[in-house]
Amino acid sequence: MKRREAREKAIQTLFQLENTELSVDEAITYITEEPTNSFYELLVRGTVQNQEAIDNTLTGSLENWSLDRLPKIERTVLRLAVFELLYNEDVPDRVVLNEAIELCKTFGDEKSGRFVNGVLSKLTKK
């Protein structure tokens, strides 16, 4: 599984976790039937484990929005991207931003990508 695919699967898993009462292991098994790779697991487990800190960081970067008001896909993409920005030093910030925008194109719409880019750009300037 390449990193792009791992991010797509991570978004699907995180989105599912927000809408169900599944455990992380159950959600991972539901999304990927094949043996998972370490990058995918890092993204999912890391985002879930650090969600409170991620949400606090996001809240400080949202203007005229609350985290609860965001559409679920944008909130999920932002959480994943903030996890990578804060906790995964292997990936350059620019790559994280580009990948988040691409995920929005895949799962959201054109407005999603612009919104996510604006929030993440503001966050990376801090």
Rank of each mutant, 00 (worst) to 15 (best):
R3P: 00
R4S: 12
E5M: 10
E5S: 12
E8Q: 12
K9H: 10
T13S: 04
T13R: 05
L14W: 00
L14R: 00
F15H: 13
Q16I: 06
E18R: 14
N19W: 05
N19Q: 15
T20Q: 07
T20L: 07
T20A: 05
L22V: 08
S23A: 05
S23I: 07
S23C: 07
V24L: 02
V24M: 02
I28C: 12
I28R: 06
T29A: 15
T29L: 12
T32D: 12
E34Y: 10
P35N: 13
T36F: 08
N37H: 09
S38C: 06
F39H: 11
Y40G: 06
Y40D: 08
R45D: 11
R45T: 13
V48Y: 03
V48N: 03
V48L: 04
Q49Y: 12
N50A: 08
N50R: 15
N50Q: 14
A53W: 02
N56C: 07
T57S: 13
L58N: 00
L58S: 01
T59M: 09
G60S: 05
S61Q: 14
N64R: 13
S66I: 05
D68R: 13
D68W: 08
R69A: 15
L70K: 07
L70A: 10
P71W: 08
K72Y: 06
I73T: 14
E74F: 01
R75I: 00
T76K: 01
V77T: 02
V77W: 00
L78D: 03
L80S: 08
L80F: 02
L80Q: 12
L80P: 00
A81P: 05
V82L: 13
V82E: 03
F83G: 01
F83Y: 15
F83H: 04
F83R: 02
E84A: 06
L85Q: 00
L85R: 00
E89G: 04
E89A: 11
E89Y: 07
E89Q: 13
E89P: 02
D90H: 10
D90Y: 10
D90I: 08
P92S: 03
P92V: 04
D93W: 05
L97G: 04
L97Q: 07
E99S: 10
A100Q: 00
A100L: 00
E102H: 01
E102F: 01
E102L: 03
L103V: 03
F107P: 11
F107A: 10
D109I: 03
E110S: 13
K111Q: 13
S112Q: 04
G113S: 06
G113T: 03
R114S: 11
R114C: 01
V116P: 01
V116D: 02
N117H: 15
G118M: 11
V119H: 05
V119F: 04
L120F: 11
S121W: 01
S121N: 15
S121Y: 07
K122S: 14
K122N: 14
K126Y: 03
K126F: 03
